[in-house]
Write a protein that binds this DNA or RNA. Structure first.
Lengths: 222, 222
DNA sequence: CACTGTGAATGCATTCACAGCG
DNA sequence: CGCTGTGAATGCATTCACAGTG
């Protein structure tokens, strides 16, 4: 079998991000300590869930007092890999969605740096978007290599998504985030994550179509 | 026929969308029948998973032959609530992300119709984006009512997300999709779904930070 | 006290494995 | 045969409940 370490639930990692976000806010408001209960409320999970999630990574609390906000915040940041370190990101596809991603300030704040944006449309190549000069998609592989990109983001049309993905992988990225509505093939060494806008709506339609009455909240991390 | 309404796994619904998508493609290629095995391969799940997912909703296959592509496609479409019916959607926030959503053709194809887009920026109000005239956010409640919107999409900055959400709910939407990095409060009758771009990257960073070696594929529906 | 951290119990989701059908 | 549909078994994730602690 693989991975000797204790198995950390996949969804737990996503919640970690939410905890950090809430802790940041609490810190800004000058809150010094927070209990699992209060933290849980803000993130919409149970208090037991919070304690269990944290327990995967160590002991951060004080009996009777709770968690020290600043300390927990930085600790979780470290664990998530967004403490100190900067991850280099490349974007393929500078359409509306791509532009939205480039414009999103949250990335930079958390240590993700867009170093490159490429597009196959010659009209876009050379233009400057969010302080980044758009390069040609043809040069993607060499760019990924020379810029040492860790993560590739795919915001291109479905029919070229796999091709672009392959170029990212060829260049040596270690993870890919795919916004195209396609299932991409990547080697086992590369981490793949899909964000599919149509599915979000379709899943809703399913519940709207049946539950006339009350609806459970949906279990999507966010 | 036993246990008439069994509980359907949340993730199963998302996979249904993927099945429909793949079936559509197979249909276009003229494929008449498909086995759970082959369908599973394309969607990156196990064949048992496919059969189990389908079994929640009925029996669609033929022993020894598999599933008739066209028939299964329409059946699943019905189940998802995207067969025939049109869902009315409203967008709040016509920035890059909002524009990207308006431009996404996949929605219309699957029976989601943007009827309204609003923005709080006076410079944007009155402009036409993707064939839709941008209205003022102030009028959101009445617009939701008069246009009979089922779904509200939130693509506004974090600090006003809750306010906009409340207006959607007040107007009577039955579901909300939130793209802002905030946890929104909605009554139990309203279905909420969050799409959080930063979390996608942070979850990746976690795995990049630790697994030097091979990475499991990530379980995000797409 | 008020709270954490965690075994044990429960509840979901996935896979196994095979009877039964075309 | 080849393949579906599904009980039974397994494997994950969440909650319970409480001993232990500052």
């Amino acid at each position: 079998m693989r991975g000797a370490r204790r198995q950390i639930p996949d969804v737990c990692v996503e919640r970690l991000s939410l905890y950090v976000r809430e802790l940041t806010r609490l810190g800004q408001r000058g809150v010094g300590y927070v209990s699992s209960r209060r933290l849980a409320e803000h993130v919409h999970v149970s208090d037991a869930q919070v304690r269990r999630d944290l327990s995967y990574f160590g002991q951060f609390g004080t009996s009777g007092r709770g968690y020290e906000v600043r300390r927990l915040q930085t600790a979780l940041g470290q664990i998530l890999g967004i403490g100190g370190r900067t991850w280099y990101v490349g974007l393929a596809g500078v359409g509306n969605l791509g532009s939205a991603l480039l414009a999103y300030r949250g990335f930079r704040e958390r240590g993700f740096e867009f170093r490159v944006a490429v597009d196959s449309n010659p009209d876009k190549v050379g233009k400057v978007v969010q302080g980044l000069t758009v390069a040609s998609s043809d040069r993607l592989v060499e760019i990924v290599r020379s810029q040492q990109l860790h993560i590739g983001i795919i915001a291109v049309p479905t029919d070229v998504a796999q091709h672009v993905c392959d170029r990212f992988v060829e260049g040596g990225v270690r993870a890919v985030v795919n916004f195209a509505p396609a299932r991409l093939e990547v080697p086992a060494t590369v981490r793949l994550r899909n964000v599919d806008l149509a599915i979000e709506l379709e899943a809703l339609a399913f519940y709207l179509g049946r539950t006339r009455g009350l609806a459970r909240q949906n279990g999507k991390a966010a």
